Amino acid sequence: MDQTVSNPLLMPFDRHLLICFSHLRWDFVFQRPQHLMTRAAATYTVVFFEEPVFDPVDTPVLRRKPVASCLEVVTPVLPHHQPRIEIDRAMAILLESLVASIEHDQLVAWYYTPMALKFTAALQEDVCVYDCMDELSAFKNAPPELQRLEQQLFGRADVVFTGGMSLYEAKRSHHPSVHAFPSSIDTAHFHQARRLQADPSDQQTIAHPRVGFFGVIDERFDIDLMARTAAAMPAVQFVTIGPVVKIDPATLPAGPNIHWLGAKRYAELPSYMAGWDVGWMPFALNDATRYISPTKTPEFLAGGLPVVSTAIVDVVQTYGSRGLVEIADAGSMPAALTTALRKGCGEMAKVDAFLSGMSWDATWSAMQDLLKSAKVLRLPTLRRLVDHV
């Protein structure tokens, strides 16, 4: 009998499980993890494993919520006031029971946060992926052990992806297989903003012209720049959409032409954008923004908006250098916005030609090819282990 064929480690994988360990909650903002995991669910059984929540429960439990075919969100629910070491132990036990409950022949561990290593040491994955979408250690309130755990993750990962070119340059020397996958775009979704639509109810009473932003409002958003620019352009309305996190909402600037509309669903964004005249990205230039590659850059462009941004490195190199986005600093921001309002959307053919090479479908397809290659590279090691046994 052919011993190679009979060996279960070497037989074709018919059922594939992908567990995604994320620092971002599924229902927070629909962005890179959601785009990729939604597409992964066409090939894998996908579990989006969130960080724990703490409720008055007696014992740790898993809250499981299906969100699409072959895709569920899993949230560990732990008792209040557990010591850190007990939290990690409880998380490990919950993860072990989860993996055992899902029939699979291959397991892919997909990390967005190195912090998950604190409870995944015993996980026996076939392929390990680190999708480094941000430099998390530079964010406000970052755990002190994050950088140490990231180094461990580099040692464990078979393949590393980065969310932009700046991150690629920063991480490429840490692992032999690092690949840049900058922010991509669901073009059809944001093209909806180019068609005239009725304003959402909370935007209807806001006058024109409108300068708009959507995204997370945190330490990366330059609230001082927002205040100064709005004061310098009293006839222009500044509309901002998104949740406020890690900063005190009371510190947000207020004024007759400043409008904070709160968080909106991903499906709603084109309807708001359709009523804007310019998209802008008033990012602070600090450690937290040094390596970002904002997904909203191609999304604004796909929506038919002229775009003005501060000098974020990936935006400058990818879009500013091609004349697709206007780059401005605090002193030149009012003039840049005035010019963008006057010019309008400009050469959309040039924008569309550039965006035609970008899609989340293409990004996932390329990533999946690298996952297959990573699995093949692991097989010789598996064979040696089996032969030894």
Rank of each mutant, 00 (worst) to 15 (best):
L9N: 13
R15P: 13
H16R: 15
I19C: 01
I19N: 04
I19Q: 06
D27F: 12
F30V: 11
F30C: 02
F30N: 05
T38G: 03
T38P: 02
T38Q: 15
A40R: 09
T45Y: 07
V47A: 02
F49S: 04
P52W: 01
P52N: 00
D55G: 10
V61T: 15
T75Y: 03
P76M: 01
L78M: 02
H80S: 07
H80T: 12
P83Y: 00
R89C: 05
L95V: 01
H104A: 05
Q106P: 00
A109M: 02
M133N: 12
L136G: 05
N141W: 06
L149V: 00
Q152S: 05
G164P: 01
S166R: 11
Y168Q: 07
R172A: 05
H179P: 03
F181W: 11
P182K: 04
R194H: 09
R195W: 14
S201V: 15
P209L: 06
G215H: 03
D222I: 07
M233L: 15
Q237G: 08
V239C: 11
V245I: 14
P249C: 08
A254Y: 00
G262D: 11
K264I: 06
A267P: 10
A267R: 11
S271E: 13
A274C: 11
G275T: 13
W276Y: 10
D277W: 08
N286D: 07
T289W: 03
E299Q: 14
L301C: 08
L301G: 09
P306F: 07
P306I: 08
Q317Y: 12
G320D: 06
R322K: 15
G323P: 05
E326Y: 00
A335L: 12
K343G: 14
E347R: 14
V351S: 07
L355T: 09
M358Q: 14
W360F: 07
W360Q: 02
W360S: 00
L371F: 12
R378F: 08
R378Y: 05
R383A: 14
R383E: 13
V386M: 13
